[in-house]
Write a protein that binds this DNA or RNA. Structure first.
Length: 483
RNA sequence: GGCCCCUUCGACUAGCGGUUAGGUCACCGCCCUUUCAAGGCGGCGGCACGGGUUCGAGUCCCGUAGGGGUCACCA
């Protein structure tokens, strides 16, 4: 059975990179009828952030990446939080010690810094020379027993090479002398990533490790660990890293990397997932709008490209708009908007009214949050007047007064009726339609960017429109009073 | 810097030896039009470079360049 996992660290907000890798892991597991699990890698006590785990799990659920096993849902191979598995790592580190494949090292951070500097001068690529290998076993055990702080390091081969097989790139060879004696167990008793990931992936029966390319060069270390334990290694897939517009790895400094940011800005989870999926994957028929189910059906590693994709928020916005106007049903779109209206303190009355508004507004906003900004006047009689709208108001004040009388005489604001009345009104005065429309638009919305006038009038209704015209004239008087 | 990975329009990508190198975003123009959008149509724009292999390379190989990653008791 194919089993994939995602292993986020609770060190901050939920990262889009986690979602990105999560999508491919999820899809590959589902494609194969396998299992997708979440494991929390909280082995760094210094970087641990309270609440981060909850944020990450919430984000994964929001995106629709439901997992079969995880810290909050349990599973057959738990616990799924590394801080709760410390005994396991110690036991396995001991096993390596017993086999003579690992050793205790007692250097202080200062000593290590000195060693690193020294090696750096010699032009060597990494930071430890394996000198503690020379400490006699008995002495090391005695010092450890005496409570001397130390770490346990992996004894890596001194010659030869390690060949890693990446499913997306093929065989990659690393010279053994470039693989350092990495720390397996830290002096605080916590494991490092290398030990924890191998022990957990093995125990949790992970068959396919899908992760970011930044892990590629550490794979030989983990492969060595699998060998040391005598376990079968999983298949490795290293996905390219998401890039920021400049080209560097997407980070806090180079772009918006928090999933929460996108949720708060009014992006739809479906759109974010869809967009992230197109970062490296493409459908056989080149369609760009597709959901997880479609991706699962069409997925193949051959359709994954390896160039680092640049995360383009502009295209994400376009795609989000596409979802709002073409993928979501009208009712669904209305429901998604409600929380945003609420947090803006706006009331929409009936669902029917909201849907009328959304119907005409749908082609005009790309994020849920943007709707609130652009459709405010539908929900607030105290809508503000934009400077350009005020200008139209001034220019068309006379026309508007006459138009108001006309509108007041109409029995109702059915589109056919208002259209006939207004076009006739303009024709009678030999006015271009816009000379009539713009002042009216400005008056009843405070804006010059709105849906069509006839639908606007119908949705707002005669009563509200007449009141708004009154208010607009009042506003006009204030403006003139100021001058 | 050592090592590793990557390289098609500005961005995301299709292409798996023979194509006028296709699509999407962005940009520009036109159409529609009462504004703003959406939509339709059209345009701009690319195989990093140099060697090979081959009758024939965007497609295969090598090199160069460029970009990225990684060199922690962080993951």
């Amino acid at each position: 059975m194919v089993k994939t996992r995602i292993a986020p660290s609770p060190t901050g907000f939920p990262h889009v990179g986690t979602a990105y890798i999560g999508i491919f892991s999820y899809v590959w597991a589902r494609k194969n009828g396998g299992r997708f699990i979440v494991r929390i890698e909280d082995t760094d006590q210094n970087r641990y952030v309270e609440g981060a785990e909850e944020g990450i799990l919430r984000a994964l659920k929001w995106l629709g990446l439901d997992y079969d096993e995880g810290p909050d849902v349990g599973g057959p191979n738990g616990p799924y939080r590394q801080s709760e598995r410390l005994e396991l790592y110690r036991r396995y580190a001991q096993e390596l010690l017993d086999k003579g494949l690992a050793y205790r090292a007692f250097e202080t951070p200062e000593e290590l810094a000195a060693i690193r500097e020294e090696l750096q001068k010699k032009g060597l690529g990494y930071g430890y020379d394996g000198r503690a290998r020379n400490i006699p076993r008995a002495e090391a055990e005695a010092r450890a027993a005496a409570g001397e702080p130390h770490v346990i390091r992996l004894k890596t081969p001194e010659s030869g090479s390690v060949v890693v097989y990446d499913e997306l790139r093929g065989a990659i060879e690393f010279s053994s002398h470039e693989i350092p004696d990495v720390v397996l167990l830290k002096s605080d008793g916590y494991p490092t990533y290398h030990l924890a990931v191998v022990v957990d992936d093995h125990l949790m029966e992970v068959t396919d490790v899908i992760r970011g390319e930044d892990w590629l060069v550490s794979t030989p270390i983990q492969k060595l660990l699998y060998q040391a334990f005598g376990w079968d290694e999983p298949k490795w897939y290293h996905l390219p890293l998401l890039r920021a517009p400049g080209g560097a790895k997407l980070s806090k400094r180079t772009g918006h990397t928090s999933i929460d940011y996108y949720r708060e800005e009014g992006f739809l989870p479906e759109a974010l997932v869809n967009y992230l999926s197109t970062m490296g994957f493409s459908m056989p028929d080149e369609r760009e709008i597709f959901g997880l189910e479609e991706m699962i059906a069409a997925f193949s590693w051959e359709r994954v490209s390896l160039g680092g994709p640049v995360f383009d928020e502009e295209k994400l916005r376009w795609m989000n708009g596409k979802y709002i106007r073409e993928v979501l049903s009208l009712e669904e779109a209305c429901d998604r908007l409600k929380p945003f209206l609420q947090s803006a303190g706006l009331e929409w009355g009936t669902d029917e009214y909201l849907c009328q508004v959304v119907t005409v507004m749908r082609p005009r906003f790309e994020t849920l949050k943007e709707f609130v900004e652009k459709a405010r006047y539908f929900f607030d009689e105290d809508y503000p007047f934009a400077p350009k709208a005020e200008k139209e108001l001034r220019k068309g004040a006379e026309t508007l007064r006459e138009l108001k009388e006309l509108l007041a005489g109409l029995p109702d604001f059915a589109p056919e009726r208002t259209e006939e009345a207004i076009t006739a009104f303009a024709a009678a005065r030999d006015l271009k339609l816009r000379k009539v429309m713009q002042p009216l638009r400005a008056a009843i919305t405070g804006s010059l960017a709105t849906p069509g006038m006839y639908e606007l009038l119908e949705i707002l209704g005669k009563e509200r429109v007449m009141k708004r015209l009154e208010r607009a004239f009042a506003h006009l008087r204030e403006l003139e009073g100021d001058q």
